[in-house]
């Protein structure tokens, strides 16, 4: 807008035409010739210019733009994608494209390999360890579950040995076992050749009221130290039918009969596995139903082993 004051009325002039004595305004873009002032305006070829950031000022490019260089990028090796070791010199800029096979190109992709070799070895070892661990867990966890299920039905027995003729105390009850050999028993007749009857008397004495609560029938076994076992049939007992009559300190008897081979009749041992069930002295059915399932069941795994 600076310039000489406009001369007045030097000729007919269009409103939009530039003033005659004014220097032509700078062409919006270089390369496009400025229209002569007197030439009538004619539409030129339409040009579209991209948006250009003016504010805030665009950051000045610190380096060359990718397209600005004629220097081709060197081929980047796909593997290993690890930064080259510091000792390896950077690829020197070469005036021409580094031809594969030339020392500079052959050295560049090979340089990271020694640096990546150790991690790859370590990674393989890690993978192998993980595979081993996973396999071991995949085998061990179901096996442990199965073992626990098996143990729920076959408890690992805890043996409490009792000296010959002695008394074993377990869970507030004192137990004794006596074994008599017999060739013939009344009511059962003579034993078959090579076998002997065993008449076993197991007595229980409750030491206190807790022992009375644990008056459930025990499991009685006849077993040789080599592991062979024979049936032991409980033929009767003299426990009072009513819990209230069960006295502390009184011995009650289980009569047991077994038949074993004659040559081991003097060696077989009696095992008594007391019941772990606690039966209250007096309890209505409603109380029993209320109690059912609330108590933790003790595993019946404690065994009294009466030595001969």
């Amino acid at each position: 807008m600076t310039g000489a004051p406009p001369p007045e009325h030097e000729g007919p002039r269009d409103w939009f035409a530039p003033r005659r004595n004014r220097p032509a305004p700078p062409a919006p873009h270089p390369g496009r010739p400025a229209p002569s002032p007197d030439a009538p305006w004619a539409p030129g070829p339409r040009r579209v210019f991209p948006d250009e950031q003016v504010w805030p000022p665009p950051p000045r490019p610190s380096r060359e733009e990718p397209g600005a260089s004629t220097q081709p990028f060197p081929a980047v090796p796909a593997v290993p994608a690890v930064p080259p070791a510091p000792a390896v010199p950077a690829v020197p800029p070469a005036p021409a494209a580094p031809l594969p096979g030339t020392p500079s190109a052959a050295g560049a992709p090979r340089a990271p390999v020694p640096a990546g070799a150790a991690p790859r070895w370590r990674r393989t070892a890690l993978l192998a360890c993980a595979a081993l661990l996973t396999t071991a867990l995949a085998v061990a966890i179901p096996a442990w579950e199965d073992y626990r299920f098996y143990r729920s039905g076959n408890p690992a027995y805890r043996i409490h040995p009792v000296a010959p003729g002695g008394t074993g105390t377990l869970m507030h009850v004192a137990w004794r076992a006596e074994v008599e050999q017999a060739d013939s028993l009344p009511g059962l007749g003579p034993a078959k050749p090579g076998r002997k009857w065993l008449k076993i008397t197991v007595t229980r004495t409750s030491l206190d009221t807790e022992g009375v609560l644990r008056r459930g029938a025990p499991v009685i076994e006849v077993r040789h130290p080599d592991g062979r076992a024979w049936r032991a049939e409980v033929t009767g007992n003299d426990l009072p039918p009513e819990a209230a009559e069960h006295e502390v300190g009184t011995a009650y008897r289980y009569d047991v009969v077994s038949v074993v081979p004659g040559d081991v009749a003097g060696q077989v041992e009696v095992r008594v596995i007391p019941s772990t069930i606690r039966m209250p002295l007096e309890e209505s059915t409603a109380e029993l139903l209320k109690r059912a399932g609330t108590e933790e069941v003790e595993p019946q795994d404690r065994v009294l082993l009466f030595r001969r």
Partner: peptide, 10 residues
Amino acid sequence: IAYPYVQPGW
């Protein structure tokens, strides 16, 4: 044969 217990020793 299913009635008696089959036991070791005989």
